[in-house]
Simulated scan of single mutants.
Amino acid sequence: MFSLIKPKKCALALLGSAILAFGLYNVHALSGVTEGGVLGMTLFLHHWVGLSPAVTGLVMNAICYLMGWKLLGKEFIAYSIVAGGGFSLFYAIVEQFDPLWPQLADHPLLAAVLGALFVGCGVGLSVRAGGAPGGDDALAMSISKLTHWDIQWAYLISDLVVLALSATYIDLSRLGCSLLTVILSGQIIGLVQRVGRREDTPVKAGAAVEEQL
């Protein structure tokens, strides 16, 4: 499986993971603004059912990656291991330092926009390389493959479903900022994946695995 991957794409996936880890630690972890997807669903189930996010997160991420493997192939799993492992490594590094912008805790709107930039650019680079740093990304890539939607719309719909469920227990002002960040990050992911490609080339989740950089 790993004999199929290319160093250039691995480097791109790792760069995306580093940007994502930096943004999640320095922005999302401080501001209380969250993404939708698997994280939001684990919090929803914990609030209403009492299931531990450690268990539900593991199960849901495994299902998302299994779906991605079935639909997108072995290269997807290989690049996802690189992206996901890189994210864990880079997050472990950045959390050794004090957050750069602790004042963001008092500015959720700014945090929503800044966080979307880091998530959008970081995930977008990893997806462009052909891998998914998290279960949310594997799910969006699989939805895009199945429906032939551009990937930003796959992200948006899956996140909106989770945020709608989260409205049953999350403060509306915080939910509004979370909605803003998922809309922006999804669009940025699509833009990063699309930029530099020929206009006549379909931009779908599976295309990044098949194309040369």
Rank of each mutant, 00 (worst) to 15 (best):
A11S: 12
L156A: 05
P108D: 00
F2G: 00
P133E: 01
V192A: 14
D171N: 11
L43Y: 08
P102Y: 06
V33M: 00
F76E: 00
G176V: 03
L179T: 05
I188P: 07
R198Y: 07
T56P: 01
G196W: 06
A205M: 03
W48E: 08
L109A: 13
I5F: 02
A129E: 10
L14Y: 09
A132F: 03
A129H: 09
A21Y: 09
F44A: 04
S88D: 10
D150G: 10
K204S: 14
V49N: 01
E199D: 07
A208Q: 06
G50K: 05
G115D: 02
I157V: 15
S31A: 09
V38S: 04
G130M: 08
R128G: 07
A105E: 09
C121L: 15
L20V: 13
A112T: 01
S88H: 13
Y91H: 12
V94Y: 11
A105I: 04
W153G: 02
V192T: 10
M60V: 05
H46S: 13
F90C: 13
F87K: 04
L165H: 09
S185V: 03
E210A: 10
L89C: 13
V119M: 14
I183A: 13
L72V: 03
G32A: 00
Q152M: 11
V203T: 06
W149C: 05
G130Y: 06
S166G: 04
A13L: 12
S166Q: 15
I93V: 15
D137V: 13
L156G: 00
L172V: 10
V59A: 15
E35I: 05
V55C: 08
Y65L: 13
V119L: 15
L165C: 14
W153N: 04
A205D: 07
G196C: 04
G190N: 07
V38I: 14
G84P: 02
L30N: 06
A138I: 09
A138D: 08
I157S: 08
F44C: 00
L12Q: 15
Q187M: 15
D106M: 06
I189S: 09
